[in-house]
């Protein structure tokens, strides 16, 4: 009876530790590993966009890569102030913007149909700012985070891929 009780308590303690690690530490660890890998690529830096074209069989950064999209990614740090993102986006093609905290929690997502125009004009800040016309303000819960902009690549031909790539490479942080 005593032995069973000890096993039961050990089981409960393991479950508690497992739950704590999975919920509170694992997402931050995954984000940290992911950001280190992404920022180690040539030319990659914090507060600077990296453009990744639609993945092919060589894409091994994440499992089940989605070949429907080209991506612009940005690891931001608001220590020196807000980040302003400005750029023209393709017309009549699905695209979306998503923002994540370091614990991988998604705190903002919108697609092209939810924006008023084909110009992406957003400011990410860690505090509420005075509202400027035509610029959407997004308040980040933390000073650091991740922006993922996805644009649909319906065809894999070179001309189509280049057209999408041109949009993503023209995104500015003025």
């Amino acid at each position: 009876m005593k032995k069973t009780l000890i096993y039961f308590l050990l089981f409960c303690a393991s479950a508690l530790v497992g739950r704590t690690v999975a919920i509170h530490y694992l997402p931050d660890y995954i984000y940290s590993r992911f950001s280190k890998m992404a920022l180690s690529r040539p030319g990659a830096a914090v507060n600077q966009f990296s453009v990744l074209m639609a993945p092919d069989e060589n894409a091994k950064l994440v499992v089940k890569p989605n070949p429907d999209f080209a991506y612009a990614t940005l690891f931001y740090d608001l220590t020196d102030g807000p980040i302003h993102i400005l750029g023209a986006m393709p017309d009549s093609i699905y695209w979306s913007v998503a923002l994540y905290q370091e614990n991988t929690v998604n705190f903002y997502v919108k697609n092209d149909m939810q924006y008023d125009s084909d110009t992406l004009n957003i400011i990410i800040s860690d505090d509420a700012m005075d509202q400027e016309a035509d610029i959407e303000q997004i308040v980040s819960p933390e000073k650091t985070g991740f922006v993922l902009i996805r644009v649909l690549v319906a065809e894999r031909d070179e001309a189509h891929q280049k057209a999408i790539s041109d949009y993503l490479n023209a995104l500015q942080i003025p």
Binding site: P55, D56, E57, A59, K60, V63, K64, P65, P67
Partner: peptide, 11 residues
């Protein structure tokens, strides 16, 4: 769980 290599890059 990765894309399957093929000549036409048809995934």
């Amino acid at each position: 769980d990765y894309l399957i290599p093929n000549q036409d890059q048809r995934y």
